[in-house]
Amino acid sequence: MPVLTVSVYEAVKAMVMDHVIQPGARVGIEAVSRSLGVSATPVREALARLESDGLVVKRSLSGYRATELLTRQGVEELFEMRLLLEPRAAALAAEHVGEAALDRIEAVVEEMQGLPDKGHSYAEYGRFAVLDQRFHDALAAASGRTMLAAAVERLHTHLHLFRLSPVSGGSPATVMEHGRILRAVLRRSPERASEAMREHLESSLRRHRDRYAEGGA
């Protein structure tokens, strides 16, 4: 993918994640092009990719709009789906993961451990969000179940949750919980891997519930 296309994609994604483009707002291709100093073509390519990420939606006649934020019910349903899929994926990964895949998962955990505390803008927490998603997607891929891995990836979980609130991700807790999952996979223990993933997801859901209790949207 051309460098310009990637940079425009990241720039527009940051606008959506940071609510510079408000949830539900129309995304004007010409306005975005002017603000970034680029032609309309890479903006259109970026929006097509963001549509596949679930961050914008294309509607006939009105063009692209930023998707609405997840509601509290939407968060509950998202975690309900994750709890059905990801503990099973972790258990299967403990059974089937190859050395190359294991090296990639370990590298993700190590990089997350070395990141500074994330801030409130996408520029500050973007790398953490990418690695968080990569960890879960890599584990699902290591399960050896193509449809299961595709289902986990299609949820685009971390983009939607970090868009709600970057501080609710709980960086130190998340990194620690990922480490527990990794250790269970390294021990080739499906039961421990499944349990560690379930505990991680339940803890993450509690953090998001706490955010709503504190007056979040």
Rank of each mutant, 00 (worst) to 15 (best):
A90H: 02
K58R: 14
V27E: 04
G119M: 00
L92A: 09
A31K: 10
K58F: 13
V43D: 05
G126Y: 08
K13E: 13
G215D: 01
E214H: 11
R183H: 12
E111H: 07
L139F: 00
E77T: 04
A90Q: 07
M17T: 06
F128A: 14
E30S: 13
D117G: 14
E51Y: 05
R82Q: 11
M176R: 14
L70K: 05
T146Y: 11
L83W: 08
V175P: 05
R34K: 10
G98H: 11
A123H: 08
E95V: 15
E86G: 07
E99K: 07
R187D: 15
A90P: 05
A93I: 09
A101Q: 15
E106N: 10
E199T: 10
A93Q: 04
A193V: 00
E45G: 06
R59Y: 06
R192I: 10
L115I: 02
T174S: 10
H96T: 14
V32M: 00
E68R: 14
A149W: 03
F79L: 03
E191G: 10
G37W: 04
T157G: 01
Q113F: 08
A100H: 12
V108R: 04
K13H: 05
A48N: 14
A138V: 05
G144D: 05
R180N: 10
G216R: 14
F128Y: 12
L85P: 06
A89C: 02
R34L: 10
E110K: 13
